[in-house]
Simulated assay, not measured.
Amino acid sequence: MKPRLGETRHAGTGRGAKPYLTSDAPALRVTANLISAYASLSLGRTAPARKCLQRPIDDAESAAPDELLPAFGACVPSTLLHLSAYRTQSLGDIFAQLPEGLRLCTCHMPAHRHHLDGNYERSVGIIHGAQAMAGFAYVIPGIYLGIMESIDLMALKRIDEAKSVFMRTRQIALPDGLIEGFGEHHGLLSGLIEACLKRDYPEDYRRAIDITHRFSSGWRRLHGPITEKDVADNLTTTEFSVAMLINRGWTNHEVAQLLGVSENTIKYHLTHAYEKLHIRGRKELGQYMLR
């Protein structure tokens, strides 16, 4: 079977990073391992991804307290896997010494952690501070910060603002075709991909969902054994989005309005989700949703 474009792209990325995975240069080593980990997850290669995420943690444990990159690199796996933040105090101590672009990347991690802890307003505050620091001069950090803000605003039910930030972030990503971050955050975006792209930008929607399927499959195989928590892996992307919103306290009517469908359609998706998860109702959804 001929590989799809996304698979070819990720395979090429992994090959490009491979020579630097054990480089003597800390910047190259950290960057290569993180890039390779994301590429491996998108290709369903769990063992190489786990190894590449572990190296920055190992480097941080043996590094001096004031070394910059090991502390940064060790925080990324904890964010990606929704684990407790790693060496956050050390990272805070060296924040001012990091290059500007890397400081923006670093801001994404405490923002993400505050979101997972339910501190949505604090997460938004961190993001706005980062954007004020450098605007959108750095494309990739700008994309991930914009995605994180969209996620926070959805959690706060500030739906129009969330859609506006999401579409503004899409405009930043468009020139270079950097749609990966949207697919990687599909579950946490809680229906925004469906609401903003499915009808008006079907090609972008298809690409984002393809990335979602590939990345999420690898992420779940890595996340589950480490955290001993199962995230649903047998739902369609729409079923998962609906289930995420319902689990967060949204009503069927609110979800239907967001996705532009009828309440009966929402009930249909929920019924199928319950059947697949072998549960009886929304009270049992929490154990299978992202936290």
Rank of each mutant, 00 (worst) to 15 (best):
234 N>D: 04
64 A>C: 13
274 Y>E: 06
246 I>A: 11
167 M>V: 15
237 T>V: 13
122 R>E: 07
280 R>I: 14
213 H>M: 07
128 H>W: 04
127 I>T: 04
44 G>E: 07
224 G>V: 11
212 T>G: 09
200 D>M: 05
99 P>Q: 03
40 S>I: 02
251 T>P: 11
245 L>W: 04
17 A>Q: 09
76 V>A: 12
128 H>R: 15
27 A>W: 06
273 A>P: 01
129 G>L: 07
13 T>S: 15
12 G>A: 08
180 E>C: 07
85 A>L: 06
122 R>P: 01
198 K>C: 07
275 E>Y: 14
73 G>E: 00
221 R>M: 09
166 F>E: 00
125 G>W: 05
161 E>H: 02
211 I>D: 08
256 A>R: 00
113 R>N: 08
149 E>Q: 14
132 A>H: 12
273 A>W: 00
203 E>L: 11
279 I>R: 02
212 T>S: 13
38 Y>M: 04
257 Q>P: 00
257 Q>E: 08
31 T>N: 07
192 L>H: 03
53 L>H: 05
110 P>R: 08
116 L>Y: 02
2 K>L: 09
269 H>V: 01
155 A>M: 10
147 I>N: 12
177 G>L: 09
220 R>T: 07
85 A>K: 12
176 D>P: 09
97 Q>Y: 12
91 L>S: 03
6 G>R: 01
251 T>K: 06
100 E>C: 12
170 R>L: 06
22 T>V: 05
222 L>D: 08
252 N>C: 15
274 Y>S: 00
19 P>V: 14
207 R>I: 07
76 V>D: 06
201 Y>S: 03
84 S>Y: 10
95 F>N: 02
148 M>E: 12
220 R>N: 09
64 A>P: 14
52 C>I: 10
215 F>Q: 10
163 K>E: 11
219 W>K: 07
53 L>I: 06
65 P>R: 04
243 A>F: 05
27 A>L: 14
268 Y>I: 01
211 I>W: 02
48 P>I: 08
174 L>V: 06
198 K>P: 02
102 L>T: 01
58 D>T: 08
118 G>H: 13
65 P>F: 14
170 R>V: 13
139 V>G: 09
219 W>G: 00
34 L>D: 04
133 M>Q: 06
51 K>S: 11
220 R>I: 15
42 S>M: 00
159 I>G: 14
53 L>D: 06
219 W>C: 04
163 K>W: 00
206 R>P: 05
